[in-house]
Design a protein around this nucleic acid. Structure first.
Lengths: 142, 142
DNA sequence: TACTTATATGAACAAATATTCATACGTTTG
DNA sequence: CAAACGTATGAATATTTGTTCATATAAGTA
């Protein structure tokens, strides 16, 4: 398929092009330059995709998921959550900090007690979509 | 607020109850046992929440997010993706394996070339919801 | 058949991260 | 004021995880 007699070479990002649709090897060989170019033009910018990954990373921990799942139902203090999840107060406190920094929860102080609650309308949707996916795949496996 | 003269003590999961709504200290003190009990009864089971976290963990990586973002637009081979993300073929291949094991992508083989594509209708929704969240928060910060 | 290419994969390494432990901070209570 | 309590936090530790490197596999090509 490849016609090596065609020596019209372009340089794109360190890769050598042979013609409009074929790129010769450098390290990884791009087989479908036109497709890649089109995809690249449509994809969100790198910064947004990084932010998105960071966002999902916060959901990607069992403890934090459980905390959020609990807070969807009711505002709770740190001690409540620690009991609910059968974990130490310290561990919960650390994770609540992560959730707060991510803008997912907020807190209010009442004396010694600090109550945490959800602070983002989007996450419930995302949470439910994710859960729906789990359930469908669960059914599929049976 | 706490009435220490009431010595009616119950044992629940290693914690000592004082009365219906108050639990005395053990390690973490549960301040609102009624709330916790209600939340616990409504929350999804632990297994599903763990699966959900595992699911989001797969999204929680910039490389994998970029791969998915690309595959939303077009089927691509490993080399295409490596070029698109300016990463090594090996790194991409490893991540594609993760995505495949998670049931997010599938592949077909055409000669030497292996083409990957999206294999889950749910993830685009989740992806877009997440992106919407990013965008709103982005606006809010300006 | 020998060579090149596209992909996969195991091992090693570095970086990120979750929990524990000890302790500090701020608030309430006796 | 001193003691108890709820929470926060820094350091240490163990585990997880993403990438690289070397190499294996499999398919096309000369």
């Amino acid at each position: 398929m490849s016609n090596r007699s065609n020596d019209l070479i372009y340089k794109i990002k360190g890769y050598r092009l042979k013609n409009a649709n074929e790129i010769e090897r450098c390290d990884g060989t791009v087989l479908h330059e036109d497709v890649v170019a089109k995809v690249q033009s449509v994809m969100p910018i790198e910064e947004d995709l990084s932010d998105l990954a960071e966002s999902f990373k916060v959901f990607g921990d069992t403890t934090r998921i459980k905390i959020l799942s609990g807070l969807f139902e009711a505002e709770m203090c740190v001690c409540d959550i620690a009991f609910l999840l059968n974990m130490t107060q310290s561990a919960i406190s650390h994770q609540l900090r992560v959730l707060k920094q991510a803008g997912l929860v907020k807190n209010r102080k009442d004396g010694k007690v600090v109550f945490y609650s959800i602070d983002d309308e989007h996450i419930k949707h995302i949470f439910d979509q994710g859960l729906a996916r789990i359930m469908v795949n669960k059914k599929g496996k049976i």
